[in-house]
Every structure is written in C-alpha cells, then in structure tokens.
Deep mutational scan, measured.
Amino acid sequence: MASQGTKRSYEQMETDGERQNATEIRASVGKMIGGIGRFYIQMCTELKLSDYEGRLIQNSLTIERMVLSAFDERRNKYLEEHPSAGKDPKKTGGPIYRRVNGKWMRELILYDKEEIRRIWRQANNGDDATAGLTHMMIWHSNLNDATYQRTRALVRTGMDPRMCSLMQGSTLPRRSGAAGAAVKGVGTMVMELVRMIKRGINDRNFWRGENGRKTRIAYERMCNILKGKFQTAAQKAMMDQVRESRNPGNAEFEDLTFLARSALILRGSVAHKSCLPACVYGPAVASGYDFEREGYSLVGIDPFRLLQNSQVYSLIRPNENPAHKSQLVWMACHSAAFEDLRVLSFIKGTKVLPRGKLSTRGVQIASNENMETMESSTLELRSRYWAIRTRSGGNTNQQRASAGQISIQPTFSVQRNLPFDRTTIMAAFNGNTEGRTSDMRTEIIRMMESARPEDVSFQGRGVFELSDEKAASPIVPSFDMSNEGSYFFGDNAEEYDN
C-alpha cells in the first residue's frame, strides 16, 4: 500500500469516517454492505422474486439502478423543472426478469421514488447511507470498465484509444464523492478537466460571474484530485501550473494530454476495490451473516471469500459463452479491467482472455432483445487465490505491452514486471518541450526514458491461498515475461453508450 500519510484510507472515504482504527473501519464497511443486503432482500420480497430470480444479476442491476435514481437529487430536480413526455419524475423502474413456464419473461416495473427511498433508509437504520449508494455506483463503473473500451470518449477529448488503461471510473457520476474520486484513473480526471476547458473556450461566460466562481472551485478541486494521483514531483508541479492558470485554454489542454500520456509509464495511484452486485450481499445477509459484527474490507480476502460461497446467475444470449460472461463479471467484481492478464489468470486459476476474444456482450439486456431465446446460467466467480488490492500504480518500471492497449494499471499487489510499449508511448511525445512547463516536461520525458521494462514492481508481494486469511504465506508467482498482458488488445469491444 502506498503510505497513507495525511490521506484517509478508502474504507474511511467509503464510510465518510473520520480517523478510525482498522477494526472500526471493518465494522463501518460491514455496516454499509449489510445495509445493501437488507435493502436487496426487501426489494425481492416487494417484487415477489423467487430465490433464483433474486440471484439473477440482471435483476440486481435494475434494483441497484432504481435506488441510485431515487437518490439522484440533481436529476430529480431537473426532471421536475423540465417535464418530458412519458417520463414521470417521481417514478423509477426498469426490467425485471421472471421464469414463467420454463421461459424467461421481461416485466417492466415502476415504483415511486419516495417508496424506494423509504425501503433503502429502513434497511440502513434510517440513514441515507450515501456510502452504500456510492458502492453500487463503483460496481456499475467497474462493470462498464470491463465491458467497454471507451474509444470515442478518448478520441473526443484528444487522447489515444490505446490509453484505455487510464480510464478507470470514466462512467462514474460526478456525485460519487471521495470514494469515487479515489477509483478514477488519470485519464478519467484528464477527460473531465478537458471537457471543462473546452467549454470555457467555447463559452465566454463559463468562468464568469457567480456560476463561474463555482465552476472555478470545481476545476481547482479536480486538479488537486489529479495532482494527488501522480507520484513524481515534476508531474505534480505541472498540475500546479494547470490549476493556477488564470484562464484555462489550449496550453492547459496540451499540458493535460501530455500528463495523461506520461501516466502510461509514470503511473498514478488509483484505488481498486472489489464492489459486488447487491444480489451477492442480499443472500449472505439472508443466511444470517452479520457483516457489521464480522467486519468487512473491500481490499482484502473478504470479497473473494464471499464470491467463493455465492451463487449468481445471468441471462445468456443464444451465441454467448457462459464462461466468457463469467470472466467479464469476475473482472468487474475485482475492479480488474486494466490489470495484467498474466496476473489475473494466476489468481483466477483459469486463463483470462483479452476482451476481443470473449464471445459475450454486456450483462444488460436491451429492451428490444428477444426473450424467447434467452437461457440462463451460473456465473463462475470463484478464484484459485486471493491478493491484496493496490492503491498505487506500482513502481515506475515497465515491460512490453500489446498493440491495442499500451500499458496497464495494476489492481493487485503482486510481484511482476509491468508491461508497456515504450516505443509507441515515446513516439507520441513530439519533443515539444517549450513553453512555461518546459523544464517539467524535459524531466518527465527523462524519467520515462530511463524506466526499464525488466524491473520488478511490488517486490516480494504474492497471492494467498483462500485458507490464508491473515495473509501469512505469500506465494510469489513467476510470469512468462514475453507473454501478452493487455485486456483490450487489438480490440473490438462495443462502445459504451450512456
């Protein structure tokens, strides 16, 4: 783990906690998980779902989305002020799938948001429990990260689609708070800032007046979040320049895209947490497990152990491969979309394939898809080993990566060399080191050039047997250095459309 220093740990961010010791953190995270579980059980009762239907990941996603929508204050306010045809701002819903006479049927349900809020609060001892809501947002974000390569979004903001390893959390809503900021990748933060800068260039009043003052505060806050992700002084200094700019424009845009590229080699610290679907927490609570009393951590053995003992089902389209669908969801559960496939294969105990080789589309089923041909199958979400999630980018030494994705962002704290394609990355730096950030740029390029592919990161860190909950005997895996390590390699994943 990167030293926490003055930073709060993510469990504290996750639970809005002030400084807590490890036991208190485990208890408050457990409380959050228990609340999600209780809410899910109650919703299944309301909807009269069978046990099997309640364990269907598509039903879980609909129920999670309903509660997130019920608590989305800004959108609710907007919907009330701008009524649109056929949208009731006070209601929320989605597809629920039921097994009827041996076939899967889709039923569109509609609930009062007020009623959903009441059920959620009741499951969370009367609190709004925003930490639990954020947790579900991060699960949705991790699922998107594993399912889609955001080529269009990258290109629109002047970045290269091969930089997708920097895009963790790119679909997280803005209201996801400190826990959300911690899991956002460098590219995601750059993209958010670039969008602001572009608006400022096109709209003279963007930075002016009372609204402009708020915009400015948001801009500086985002700059500080991004600065905190960088691990070298030169990158941090460049972020200070971007933040202090009187009138952010093209120079800042250039600096930010430069920094994003540099992060492929001088990786930023991005938190990883295993956020599971509500249909995993519900049955665990129903079986009598007391998360608050037992304590829970999002970055240790607990999620692995929970998945070892969970039964989750998914709808499967006619030509999809259930094992591939399982891999997709497994990666999402562990926030591992940008991790090295060699490491993932070792931990999972079966070969993890790149996205383009998977015969599976996303987990969600569109409303126009034919239910007649839908089957369902068990998702295999178990693992051979477990490993500690990392909050750091690993040290800054790398190795060759593949054509589709030119770097990785480690999820697990496991000893290995970190793949990246130096030639491709360095070719993108057209040696432009003039301007006010020239000395920093020169320094950053120097550090990137001296990074050695064969150097090892996370020295001495290994994986653990599932029986080793105290992480007492690390097993340090050895990897084939020459092997392909990137998930979005030469990829044809669908595009994420909101």
Rank of each mutant, 00 (worst) to 15 (best):
L344M: 07
L79K: 10
I444A: 09
P277D: 04
Q122D: 00
A251P: 09
K470E: 12
E115M: 07
R317H: 01
S383Y: 06
G404L: 13
I33V: 13
K214E: 13
R446D: 13
R305Q: 05
I365M: 11
E53Q: 11
D51I: 15
K103G: 13
L226M: 13
E484Y: 06
A2S: 08
A237W: 03
D88K: 01
T232K: 15
V186M: 15
K198R: 15
Q364I: 13
H140F: 13
K31D: 02
N368P: 12
F39M: 09
G282M: 12
Q415K: 12
I197N: 12
G102A: 14
W386P: 00
L344V: 10
R65F: 12
Q122R: 14
F412E: 03
T171K: 04
A131V: 13
G180H: 03
R400G: 08
V100S: 15
G37P: 03
Y52G: 10
S367D: 01
E53R: 00
V352R: 00
Q42I: 05
M1A: 13
L358Y: 05
V280K: 03
T23C: 01
D491K: 07
T15Y: 01
R293I: 05
G300K: 14
F489Q: 03
P477E: 03
R174L: 05
W207R: 08
Q231I: 14
P283G: 15
A85K: 15
F479G: 00
H334A: 10
D88H: 10
K103C: 07
T147Q: 15
T134Q: 08
P277V: 01
R199L: 07
N321C: 14
M163W: 01
V312D: 00
G362F: 04
S176F: 09
S262Q: 09
N430S: 13
N319M: 12
R121P: 02
Q241W: 04
G5F: 13
Y111P: 00
Q308V: 14
P173K: 00
E494H: 12
N205E: 03
C333G: 11
N202T: 04
Y10H: 15
A336Q: 06
R26L: 07
P318Q: 12
R118V: 15
T62V: 13
R38S: 11
D112Y: 12
D340K: 03
S176L: 01
